[in-house]
Computed example of a mutant assay.
Amino acid sequence: MADTAAGAERRRGRNETEEERADRMWGELIQEVRVAQTGVQILFGFLLTVVFTPRYATLEDTDRAIYIVTVVLGACATGALIGPVSLHRLVSGRRVKPQAVTWASRMTFVGLVLLLATMTSALLLILRVATHDGYVPYLVTGVVVWYLLCWFGVPLWTRHRYTSR
């Protein structure tokens, strides 16, 4: 009998109201966003300085195009990952936290995808400039596969494997 009660408790999850759940999820989301924000802001800050270096003038047209795309992606990723903070500030006290959590979660996911694209194009640019070798696209592809596995593959597999249906 006790095993059945324990199993039922596991299936039900936490005993919290919608507001308590939204508060908990908001706290967890903001902690996750802090990690991603730091990474994207450091990368974006570095990218902004490149155009002011003497080496920039010597870049090939293709490398300049990759640089511009990378900066724009970095700006978009920064916006998406800072968006949840602005959202919270603008809707705080309006009794819409569950909806705010949903939208902030979506912005964070978009921000992670944009961060992946930014890191990919930054890596492509750096390796092209550093090596001029034909194996660069293969290296970048390998790193992208690794990011996809770490950021999306393992989490989705874990969700599928360990959540109840």
Rank of each mutant, 00 (worst) to 15 (best):
T4P: 05
A5L: 13
G7I: 09
G7W: 09
G7L: 14
A8Y: 01
R10T: 12
R14S: 15
R14N: 13
E20Q: 15
M25A: 13
M25N: 13
W26A: 07
G27P: 02
G27E: 09
L29T: 04
L29H: 07
L29Y: 08
L29G: 08
I30N: 06
E32P: 02
V33L: 09
V35I: 14
Q37Y: 07
T38L: 14
V40A: 08
V40K: 08
F44K: 05
G45L: 09
F46M: 10
F46C: 03
F46D: 01
L48G: 11
L48R: 03
T49G: 10
V51Y: 10
V51I: 15
V51R: 06
P54M: 06
P54Y: 00
R55F: 02
R55M: 10
A57L: 12
L59N: 01
E60M: 09
R64V: 06
A65T: 01
A65F: 07
I66L: 03
Y67F: 13
Y67K: 12
I68K: 06
I68H: 06
V71T: 02
V72T: 07
L73Y: 07
L73W: 03
L73D: 00
G74Y: 03
A77L: 06
T78G: 14
G79S: 11
L81N: 02
L81F: 03
G83I: 11
P84W: 04
V85A: 09
V85I: 14
S86Y: 14
L87E: 11
H88Q: 14
V91M: 12
V91E: 13
S92Y: 13
S92M: 10
G93Q: 05
R94I: 04
R94M: 12
V96A: 00
K97F: 01
V101E: 07
V101L: 03
W103D: 10
A104E: 02
S105P: 01
S105H: 07
S105K: 07
S105M: 02
R106D: 08
R106M: 10
M107S: 10
M107R: 01
M107L: 14
M107H: 04
T108N: 05
F109V: 14
G111S: 03
G111N: 00
L112G: 01
A117M: 05
A117R: 00
A117Q: 04
M119R: 01
S121L: 02
L123V: 02
L123G: 08
I126G: 04
I126R: 12
D133P: 01
G134M: 09
Y135I: 10
Y135M: 11
P137W: 03
Y138L: 09
V140D: 00
G142N: 07
G142H: 07
G142M: 04
V144H: 06
W146Y: 13
Y147C: 03
Y147P: 00
L148N: 13
L148Q: 12
W151Y: 13
F152N: 06
G153I: 12
G153Q: 08
V154D: 03
P155G: 11
P155Y: 02
L156I: 09
W157L: 15
W157Y: 14
R159G: 02
R159C: 08
H160W: 13
R161C: 05
Y162I: 05
T163V: 14
